[in-house]
Design a protein around this nucleic acid. Structure first.
Lengths: 327, 327
DNA sequence: GTAATAGTGTCTTTCAGACAGTATGAC
DNA sequence: GTCATACTGTCTGAAAGACACTATTAC
């Protein structure tokens, strides 16, 4: 474990989940090669070429897609053996570091090469969009199979890894026991449960036991190359969580926007509807925006335009949270 | 950027911030070589030997210190060039992945080798402990120098990296503008500001410009090897944040405990005092604990003993937070 | 006028924060 | 009794949640 040079060479890969919101659809930047599944923008890291990981990431994204990233956040480092769905063939072992980046959809779409395009993220995770009510795919397809998987006590006992929770407990934890206990932040937990149960395409592709085959599995959202859907799930969960305690939505908004547009962006990301009046009050009391003075001119009553108040970054400790005051 | 084999070999290092709480002092496991600064338990990752990063981490910690880890969470991956305080000497480039682990202080301390021991974490971050009121070191040593650093407009303009916030704004953001705006989660931001200002020992050691020299800098908390103090800062911040929305405290508690002990553990980690009645009500309404029936026998009135209710993991979506209900 | 979207006013319930109290043991 | 620590009852004010209502445009 402590020798200096492991025999397998190691390659560091950077994968970026680059998010933008167009109207009420969150979009994710993907590259598609002919006949292959979509994948996140991806580059390998050469420590000689770049001072830090983040600099390298910005550089190769600019290179590949012409996008200049604003907000960037490191998500997670994955190094599972076999995650690059090739057997041990002497190729370098790939450790991949996932990133979340936020950007605005550019007016000049022509700047982007044809190999990369924004696609709605709910295509990859159809069960995560609750804005139209509880998604039908849950009760029609997913939960019956998951219940089936969870009640297979024999298979459960045969599992190698010891687990603190039973299959049924994990199912309840991820997908909610009763109505109203759906936690929109558990995107990754749900994806990993589906993977384990062999219900996503990637599970079959990677040779997981219990897979029900690609024909069936492809219906549970569109697959991605490598483990990129896992990285996207991480990004979605993190972004949904972060919305609640940091003013990151504004990274996705244009310089001025209506409150309705702000709300529908938040709803698009968190995948659920919010109470209009309460949302407006929340925004108002946190003093995160200020009116620009101008208005929109669409049909219906014109809406006042607002801009983000950058001062809140200093004024409020952490716009959102609490644990109890000192006493 | 996209060639498969970069010339510099890459080594993956794992560093673990292993936390336990003894009485009212949070402890961190460190190894100390003679004459050298303390460092976190550290091992390099060989993909052939271990299936996943976490498995590798558990293995080498068990190997080095005899500890069997419970809760483990990945924190962050650092790959800054020069972070291992050696010049470019042909040695492999080290990418280090920081982990947070929680454990209980074992009764059998003899199991641990002499090269590793628990030490109070506030020795490394004396300005983070507000339980005895505002730490004197802040107004006596830190803030005067930071204000000095922040008002050096010439140096600020000469900085290479473009920054969205000015030095003064960042100072306010990290250390609070007025009383009451101290955010105990910003441990990492504060450490990095001090590093940039040359006020921690590591800054001088790594050859940062603006360093005030080791004699002065050593007073701002004890240094650690490599960038381990940065990893510890990340761990402290993450743990302080996580306390508020996940029941992780119980990983640090014995099987049964008094409410006072629970409160003082939370206080030890978050570095501030809490209102007793409100804390008890909070614990009660979240139904996270249940009485065991027995009591303590110390001096003073005996306290009822409680245990953690593991069911809450399934019952409540995420014990703590909110964003507003569906509407 | 209608359709469509924007933006209040105010009521109720819940809960965080704080006051000051009482209870039960050792001595 | 005193000292020390454990525990509780209740007030207040601020939000969260939800009700219905008014406002301003295009047609």
């Amino acid at each position: 474990m402590n020798e200096r040079f492991p025999e397998t060479p190691i390659e560091i890969g950077l994968a970026a989940a680059i998010v933008a919101v167009e109207g009420d659809a969150p979009q994710i930047l993907v590259g598609h090669a002919d006949g292959d599944d979509d994948g996140l923008p991806y580059g390998s890291f050469d420590p000689l070429a770049h001072q830090t990981l983040e600099i390298a990431l910005r550089a190769f994204v600019a290179d590949q897609s012409g996008l200049s990233l604003g907000y960037v956040e490191q998500l997670y480092t994955f190094a599972d053996r076999g995650r690059h769905d090739r057997p041990n063939d002497g190729a370098p072992h790939v450790v991949s570091i996932g990133y979340l980046a936020l950007t605005r959809v550019s007016a000049k779409a022509e700047e982007r090469p044809k190999t990369a395009a924004f696609r709605p993220w709910y295509r990859f995770f159809p069960w995560e969009d609750w804005r139209g009510g509880r998604p039908a795919i849950l009760d029609r397809d997913i939960l019956p199979r998951l219940n089936n998987w969870a009640s297979d006590r024999a298979a459960e006992k045969a599992e190698t890894r010891a687990r603190p929770l039973s299959r049924l407990e994990r199912l309840r934890f991820c997908f909610g026991a009763d109505a109203g206990s759906w936690d929109e932040e558990k995107v990754l937990d749900r994806y990993e449960l589906l993977y384990e149960a062999g219900l996503v395409f990637e599970a079959g592709r990677d040779g997981r036991i219990g897979s029900t085959g690609p024909e069936t599995a492809r219906r549970f959202g569109e697959p991605m190359r490598h483990d990129h859907r896992r990285i996207l799930a991480t990004a979605m969960g993190r972004l949904r969580a972060k919305l609640k305690y940091r003013p990151v939505v504004f990274e996705l908004m244009p310089a001025s926007f209506t409150l309705t547009a702000l709300q529908s962006t938040v709803e698009a990301i968190s995948g659920r509807h919010l109470h209009k009046q309460n949302f407006r009050r929340l925004v108002e009391t946190t003093a995160m925006v200020e009116p620009t003075g101008s208005q929109t001119t669409t049909k219906g009553r014109p809406a006042a335009l607002f801009r983000f108040r950058r001062d809140v970054l200093q004024e409020r400790p952490a716009p959102g949270l609490r644990l109890g005051k000192r006493g």
